[in-house]
Design a protein around this nucleic acid. Sequence first.
DNA 1: ATTTAAACGAGACGGTACGTCGCGTCTTTGT
DNA 2: ACAAAGACGCGACGTACCGTCTCGTTTAAAT
Lengths: 202, 202, 202, 202
Amino acid sequence: MPTKNTRRSHSGPKRDAQTHEAILAATLALLDDVGYGSLTIEGVAAKAGVGKTTIYRWWPSKGALVGEALSTKLSKGPEEETGDLRQDLLQTVRVTLENYAGQSSPVAVLAFAAHVERDFDLLESFRKDFLADRRRHGREMLERAVSRGQLPQDTDIDLMMDIWAGAIFYRSHITGDPIEPDFPEKVVQLLLSGTLPRRSSD
Amino acid sequence: MPTKNTRRSHSGPKRDAQTHEAILAATLALLDDVGYGSLTIEGVAAKAGVGKTTIYRWWPSKGALVGEALSTKLSKGPEEETGDLRQDLLQTVRVTLENYAGQSSPVAVLAFAAHVERDFDLLESFRKDFLADRRRHGREMLERAVSRGQLPQDTDIDLMMDIWAGAIFYRSHITGDPIEPDFPEKVVQLLLSGTLPRRSSD
Amino acid sequence: MPTKNTRRSHSGPKRDAQTHEAILAATLALLDDVGYGSLTIEGVAAKAGVGKTTIYRWWPSKGALVGEALSTKLSKGPEEETGDLRQDLLQTVRVTLENYAGQSSPVAVLAFAAHVERDFDLLESFRKDFLADRRRHGREMLERAVSRGQLPQDTDIDLMMDIWAGAIFYRSHITGDPIEPDFPEKVVQLLLSGTLPRRSSD
Amino acid sequence: MPTKNTRRSHSGPKRDAQTHEAILAATLALLDDVGYGSLTIEGVAAKAGVGKTTIYRWWPSKGALVGEALSTKLSKGPEEETGDLRQDLLQTVRVTLENYAGQSSPVAVLAFAAHVERDFDLLESFRKDFLADRRRHGREMLERAVSRGQLPQDTDIDLMMDIWAGAIFYRSHITGDPIEPDFPEKVVQLLLSGTLPRRSSD
DNA sequence: ATTTAAACGAGACGGTACGTCGCGTCTTTGT
DNA sequence: ACAAAGACGCGACGTACCGTCTCGTTTAAAT
């Protein structure tokens, strides 16, 4: 069965797909060029060759616009799962690293998150849509590891995710220290075995 | 007739200590009320009963002003050290938690950090002064633990600090999930022993 | 003894005279160039090399700005009076002609009047200040003529003024017919003696 | 299936007479409500229940639309002529008074005239069609009076018309003074006999 | 004790961007 | 097929703050 078009009687959004994409592209370009704080709707409009009105018609605020633009860029997780906990964890950490510290406009995530904190509506959709989508894979992967007995029944999955995401986020945006290629391995090692020496083999 | 003027100023540039404090206090108050993004120099000046000029005389930018205001609020670490690694770590994590997720204006930290990312001069002093001051205690505490043999020689101290600070930062500012009272214990436990079950007692 | 505030009447408007004049000049220039309807505050600001804010600080609306600009251009009446009714009337009609149909920005008067009709505050000041100032001379001149017996006691002075001003206004702005040099004489002649032939000499 | 649609129009361009009238009616209604300056095409379209496109299809500009709307409201002159100059003049002045100062949307005439001054095409048709139509009756009436010897051969008919129309226009739109019921009589008296006392009877 | 130079409050200034409104054109959609 | 509905690029609106710049007025230090 082809279209199950849910549009009722008529009209619908009627929005111009090309224009829409031009706006998102201009937004991402300007995030790279000038950063979130200096990004202006007028600037996006000019760069996209579009009227300001068109932007305001579809996005209620700069935050919402940037949020959608970032959504199109950030991965929701690796595609495959090996069943090997350490390997799967490593894959997931690497995706997070790419999302939060990759070369292309990662800086904006911080400013976007900052902006979002004061905008309740946007905060809702940021957490419900954006974040939840990107945490789902990791959560399910860990849940499977628990059910397979690779992790204890009482494992705090949220804590694990906050630790790896937080470490990446904090290092890349707050301390600014370089993130070495073995950073994901180290994080995974610490997550699994901690820092203290083990009596027996690891 | 005794002066009702309590001013006592002296050193270097003739700046008025009362005025200075009124500005910082107004800044902190407005951070709480309206957030970093909506904080304006004009607003601070009005709230402090001060001319804009006076603010611009002493701080080059909104970021610098907020940075100094936050510095006066955020702790540099616990005063004492027990020598018990787990206890000392717990104390330090709790201070970080208070700094980043305490009730009073913690939100601004995120926005401040976001702003700072595009302001190179400010970024420098933020990392060299503000952050380094607040990381020094934890680093030295961990270094002592290593030298006492409580932690392996090759312990990645920066990684440990990024993990606890990042977890707190990420949960309080990004996911927004509640932080339970046992959160520091859980973080410390994971930092020390990881998630995997140990063969022998922990 | 508390400080008695020595500030009493000072500060005042503190406005920049040069800027003020540049704005009025730019306004008059643009009235000539593009007309009242197409005159924009942004245009005036740009031409005067001034921020929009400065204009809005001192004038509440485009109408008020144009009103003041026109006030500086339009004469309040001839300086001298001969006592010869026909001559004095002629002088006054000629001033009105120059005001309403002179080469420099007379067109704007019509549009200004049109705008003013929907702006009650501006209408008040237009009639109380602008118009009254420009009608005073004619009214007093005619009153003196009445008291000298040159005109009947029951002369309707307002009607006379409306007739000559209206004729000029109507011809120059509504019908657009050319106004010949003898137009003032013809108006004065009609005002004094009407159109019908007189039994005796005129 | 027979149409229950009562629309019947078709001649020339296929324009819908009902729609056309609805637009003109909405235009007049909005002229009264908000005035010429605040009248918008979008407002007319909304009030008439019509698409903007339809308006733009038939009228090139707001001025043209208002011009046509006003044309349908303003009289071209009294129907009968008595041959008594004073009476006929009085009738004509009264019609002009009703057109320019009557209760229904007279204000718009001024604004329309103002707009028209900068729109050359519209100005042409305003003067050639609208005005000429409404001045024809007065002109012909006066010409007949001249040919009957009731007025001198060299009477300046245009001047007479400008004087009564101008006086009405000026008083109602510029000075704003009230127009008493005997205003037409006074104007006619002055037009015919002037202000100066006559030696013999009037 | 008086002078003097700074720091101060106030706020005007030239600007930039805001978010809104209406323009006149062009496209889609439903009857 | 036509016209309503309305999206579009555009330009001006009037507002809020920016950071700079005079203005007098304190006020503490150096005469």
